[in-house]
Amino acid sequence: MRKIILILITFIGLQGDKVNAQSIYLATGGNGSFFSATNVENIDAKTNSLTSVFNTATEEIAFTVPLRTFKFKSSLMEEHFNEKYVESEKYPNATFKGKINETIDWTKEGTYDITSTGIMNLHGVDQMRTEKGKATVKEGKIIIDCTFNVKLTDYKIEVPKLVMSNIAPDLDIKVNCTYTPYKKVAK
């Protein structure tokens, strides 16, 4: 028994060490964009204020983006986006917390197809989702690319009838993050 515990402690000790020091990757200034295409007009918006944390040991991943940082081609659209649709005063961020489903050796260089299952929160609504993406490990960095689709009604974002022809019922979303090892875990 004692032996087992000893082994356990050593193992956990190592694991803990690994988690704290090497396995956390951080991406700041990640790119996010969305696109709405209708016959009347195309609306697109971009942000480069997306941040993400990725723990390669547990394969847990989290994203957050302040919705106010989305830039539109017109300031009026930006105002309407914040005021009428995502209500960024009430719900300032869109987040995703989940886990990568595949087991990947994150120290080995290469490109991997990945899927992640987790909870996406937008406009105060939580939704369980599984999204596909691509991960590239190169020179100690990890790059994650991901494209997915969000249905506005799933997140209780209402489009008034008057402008229904201008706004697509679902948006194409793109995310691109470059992770570098996170040096210190603040304690």
Partner: peptide, 23 residues
């Protein structure tokens, strides 16, 4: 106890990201 300390919870992951700078 050691074990639970070793694993960083998901909420902590998001906490690493810092404060909302858009305020």
């Amino acid at each position: 106890m050691f074990f639970t300390q070793g694993v960083i919870a998901q909420d902590d992951l998001l906490k690493l990201l810092g404060k909302d700078t858009t305020l």
